[in-house]
Design a protein around this nucleic acid. Structure first.
Lengths: 97, 97
DNA sequence: ACGATACTTGCGTTCTTGCGCAATTGGTGA
DNA sequence: TCACCAATTGCGCAAGAACGCAAGTATCGT
């Protein structure tokens, strides 16, 4: 039996993570990061949105603690903060069928 | 290696499921349903919201395919549509820390 | 120091969500 | 049929989220 007695705050944080996952473009970003770190520009290309828009999506993912950023010269590379994020994507996919 | 090549539509559905999970009250509902089916009124009490509001939250969860409803006389009982939903809650919790 | 490249931030618009309240539907029992 | 209880639906409002575009910041090369 799993412990289900979640506190108010924990639920709020969980919900925040779920909301961060609740956008197709952001899911696409996370999938794109599955193989390793990718720059903002490349992500924007893959997801087919403008760079500023992508930057905002990445800010959402960062705020939720799902990705981390690394700067190398001019370009910023994002990567998954936690492999469980991919698990979550898979689980969503399998639930959504 | 997990299959990550998600289609547009599948991502949209996954995102819809994630949005359904993206509210603390709805997470509380799902946790409450872990033990078995619960009536709308009881859920409203547990989650501390008004019945019409609860009904709307349940409609969201139903639309996402996360719960199912059964009518018995006057009262409607909701239950989890899929045990993986609980897994998802747990996973969110562990990611959100 | 200057221009160029890569991101981020701010702003205005539009669309979506959550909530409270009133009204309605569905089912039960007198 | 009528009152009653449980749940759903409709509506208006306020808060939040996504997008496009313009402006700002950071780093590199010359």
């Amino acid at each position: 039996m799993i412990d289900i007695a979640t506190t108010e705050g924990a639920r709020a944080r969980s919900a925040a993570v779920a909301r961060a996952l609740g956008d197709p473009k952001r899911l696409c970003v996370l999938e794109s990061l599955a193989a390793g770190e990718v720059s903002v520009g490349d992500l924007a290309t893959r997801v087919a949105c403008q760079v500023p828009n992508m930057s905002q999506h990445l800010a959402v993912l960062r705020a939720a603690g799902l990705v981390t950023a690394r700067r190398d010269g001019n370009t910023v590379y994002y990567r998954l903060a936690d492999p469980r994020v991919l698990e979550a994507c898979q689980l969503l996919l399998s639930i959504a069928r």
